[in-house]
């Protein structure tokens, strides 16, 4: 058994596609119409055959309260790894991304939290050299 996909619930798939590709830098893997929504996944250009991220429609009634409660406590919906978090922070800030936590040390990692503009907080981390 392997983990091939993970998902975030997004408020608007078109807006999410723009943010996750143009801003974060992922690339589209699948974009398949499914009724009023799409099966929309992105992958990292550093690992195009790797785990996909599903930009999942958030219209189920349970989704909004779930997302609201996570954001209220500052809890990220998911986490991405970068090689240089301070450089990535500067790059994303220049693109207008809002951060709720600028890079900070947290044990073996350095982390920051950003707003994906689709209703989620996203953590990015850099693994510190051992």
């Amino acid at each position: 058994m392997r983990i091939y996909i993970s998902s975030v619930f997004v408020d608007d798939q078109s807006k999410a596609l723009d943010f996750y590709t143009r801003v974060l830098g992922f690339q589209v893997k699948h974009d398949i119409p499914m009724g009023e929504h799409r099966w929309l996944t992105v992958v990292s250009p550093e690992n195009p055959e790797g785990t996909e991220l599903l930009l999942e429609p958030g219209d189920h009634p349970a989704v909004q309260p779930y997302k609201t409660a996570l954001v209220a406590d500052g809890i990220p919906a998911t986490s991405f790894q970068v090689d240089n978090i301070d450089a990535e922070y500067a790059r994303l800030r220049a693109l207008g991304v809002a951060f709720t936590r600028e890079p900070m040390d947290a044990g073996p990692v350095r982390m920051a939290v950003l707003d994906d503009s689709c209703g989620n907080l996203i953590q990015i981390i850099e693994m510190k050299a051992a």
Binding site: D73, G74, I75, T100, M104, D105, A106, G107, M111, V113
Partner: peptide, 14 residues
């Protein structure tokens, strides 16, 4: 100005 998540993260780190 720390969220619950940050307070927990700092607690775990320290």
């Amino acid at each position: 100005n720390q969220s619950l998540f940050e307070i927990c993260a700092a607690s775990h780190a320290e």
